[in-house]
């Protein structure tokens, strides 16, 4: 329900959402295949070492239309049925970070603010006056600044990093809801059908009731 309110706010009033006192813009996701492929590429390099996407399988990527060569490259000698399990063992992760990095399959759905939250988080790293790494959105984070945004002040480079974060978030949004495109497409047909049917039902109702007068 809260998410619904957030969506309403974003789409109707074009307003901003507050999470942990940081402004999350409405970034929107790029659902085009090239963006998803770029995002997957970045994710396999930057995130996949530690994070799993245990509900996403390599065959899902090929079935959706990802470039077969790329999928085979990511997959290595694992079967297509294998899930995108991170390379880091849980025990070593606990040793390094004190906790197991969360699974990313549903990350976009599991956070208030969805893609906006994750995007703002990825580019939210900064260096505190004390010289320590922190994050505007999630100060307690254990994750290092993988995109290297905290050390960059050059606007051109920052824009480039923001583009990378956007691609990663787009891929994660797809991973969390792989049937979204299909759902929307089917939804348009259903809505058109229902509008026509309801108009017909209204006409029938009026005709039948007109017999009374």
């Amino acid at each position: 329900m809260r998410k619904f309110i957030v969506i309403l706010m974003l789409y109707c009033f074009n307003s901003v959402v507050h999470a942990e006192d940081v402004r999350l813009g409405n970034i929107g996701v790029d659902a085009s295949l090239p963006a998803l492929e770029r995002g997957a590429d970045l994710l396999m390099n930057a995130c996949h070492n530690c994070h799993s996407l245990k509900y996403v399988r390599y065959r899902d990527l090929s079935a959706f239309g990802f470039d077969k060569k790329k999928v085979d490259g990511w997959r290595g000698d694992q079967p297509p049925e294998a899930a995108l399990i991170g390379l880091l063992a849980d025990e070593s992760a606990v040793q390094m970070f004190g906790k197991v990095p969360p699974d990313l399959s549903l990350m976009i759905k599991a956070r208030e603010g969805g893609e906006n939250y994750v995007y703002s988080y990825l580019i939210g790293y900064y260096i505190t006056p004390e010289g320590l790494l922190s994050n505007h959105v999630f100060p307690e984070t254990k994750m290092p600044d993988v995109l290297g945004v905290s050390g960059v002040t050059d606007p051109v480079q920052r824009t480039e990093i923001q583009g990378k974060a956007h691609d990663i978030v787009s891929f994660l949004a797809w991973a969390a809801d792989p049937h979204q495109e299909e759902r929307h497409r089917l939804g348009y047909y259903v809505m058109v059908y229902l509008l026509v049917l309801t108009a017909l039902l209204f006409a029938v109702k009026n005709q039948i009731w007109s017999r009374l007068k």
Binding site: M1, R2, K3, F4, I7, K109, A110, R111, E112, G114, D177, R183, H184, L186, G187, V190, M191, L194, L195, L197, T198, L201, F202, V204, K205
Partner: peptide, 24 residues
């Protein structure tokens, strides 16, 4: 006729905002 109107509202949620009823 009422059912038609109901289905329009219901299906717009099912197809376009289904996660609005599911807490993150």
């Amino acid at each position: 006729y009422g059912l038609g109107l109901f289905l329009i509202v219901y299906c717009s949620f099912v197809f376009f905002f289904p996660d609005s009823m599911i807490e993150p």
